[in-house]
Design a protein around this nucleic acid. Structure first.
Lengths: 236, 236
DNA sequence: GGCATTACTCGCACACTGTTCGAGGTGACT
DNA sequence: AGTCACCTCGAACAGTGTGCGAGTAATGCC
């Protein structure tokens, strides 16, 4: 049970570069492409090396290991969520929430990494900083700034992760939503026999003809504004 | 790019059993032990087989593959969150939130799986059913029942996952919190040079002498009640 | 110019992983 | 006694991340 001291890409000095052959940025870019194209499982050092016309082990000069590579490429995901610098706290929170949601949708493989992999990269940090600034300006006091901001981030992650994960499963099966639903139907029905509340909801869905994908999006909005309302009352 | 139709343990008929030698429940129990003791990476079919005094490939008679095994063992995590059957919606929501949080703390490896792996097992379903019942009885109308409940689940997951993930990293390094903080300090400071809001917060933390672990727990409470408040105003 | 040093590339090898296949065994029922 | 379903498992395959050490190429220095 040997333990290694904490280490993250962001805690190590970057090696001086001679600007030739492989570079860290190039590797991260290629990894991002590979991930977007084929998903998390498809990312292997050998495949990534091949895509760059290099040997797999060459990558290890530029990146300590695969985990660090993933930290780097995750920060690229955060790069897409850009926040205004001097906006209303509610507006900033909304931009963050929808920006984050959108970013994860664009990079579905990140759903299983986000919140789990340390987010200490520059892009993650500036997003945090902007968000925190908005809450501080809003008038939250002391540590409440932290709490309020954390709440928004938590909600956003918790809503986005399962949503994207579901879509990923859906896509991996290659079935349409209707296909999947009818495939699962009998088992669901059986399981719901002694779960009256779920059953009722399920029937409502069917009768109201709600598109589950749209419903998820509305659910996101619903919860977000509820949370922001709740936070707003804590401002005085 | 071949695609396989959707399949989950819960969608397949269970094999009849002759109640001898290995059994699915036994396997799941052993997997849970192994996961709790050594973490997600330590779970391999061979190790699990060995722990049961069986060959690795014997497991494949009882379980289709590792993913299904993980679905099964995840449902055991949900087993720990038991909800009252006829309580106030706020109370039920709180029991769920803290119950879920506690369950994931007890099984830290689940942090990187929850929300990503389909939760169609009996325990997950009954928890959902109870939670949904509480929101329906509370007076939420139509699809708002779903939305309100989803919001609570989202917040809970999004708050818990990073918290547990952080503790896992901490434990894996074997360093104390103070060690880690002082190790990261210089890099953090440098990174925060042009992130004034983060820096200010960081300094407040230090001066107020807040224990970050306690703070996280208070943050969970803060966000949860804010969300419930916000949901409450939508009841009329 | 020559030479030493640094910066990088990469093949080999190791210890693993999940999973398939097919050969075997074992008990219950006819 | 024979059949059949249930169950176990060793061998093998195609992968995985990564440490090591040898090899190459460009730079800095005299």
């Amino acid at each position: 049970m040997s333990v290694k001291p904490f280490s993250s890409v962001w805690t190590r000095e970057r090696k001086g570069t001679r600007e030739q052959g492989l570079s860290r940025d190039q590797i991260v870019r290629a990894a991002l492409e590979l991930l977007d194209a084929e998903g998390l499982d498809a990312l292997s050092m050998r495949k990534l090396g091949a895509r760059l016309g290099a040997g797999a082990t060459s990558l290890y000069w530029h990146v300590a290991n695969k985990d660090e590579l993933i930290e780097l490429v995750m920060d690229e995901v955060y790069a897409a969520v850009v926040l205004p610098e001097a906006a209303d706290w509610r507006e900033t929170a909304r931009v963050f929430a929808y920006g984050m949601r959108h970013a994860v949708f664009e990079h579905p493989w990140s759903a299983s990494l986000i919140g789990v992999v340390p987010a200490l990269g520059p892009n993650a940090l500036t997003a945090s900083d902007r968000l925190m600034g908005a809450f501080a300006r809003a008038g939250f006091e002391g540590i409440d700034v932290d709490y309020a901001m954390t709440a928004v981030v938590s909600y956003t992650l918790g809503a986005t992760i399962p949503e994207v994960a579901f879509l990923t499963v859906l896509e991996a099966t290659g079935q349409s939503l209707a296909d999947l639903q009818s495939a699962v139907e009998p088992i669901v029905m059986k399981a719901m026999a002694d779960r009256p509340n779920l059953l009722k909801r399920y029937e409502s869905y069917a009768s109201e003809g709600v598109d589950p994908l749209v419903a998820r999006r509305l659910a996101f909005e619903f919860g977000l504004t509820a949370l922001l309302d709740g936070l707003g009352t804590r401002l005085r």
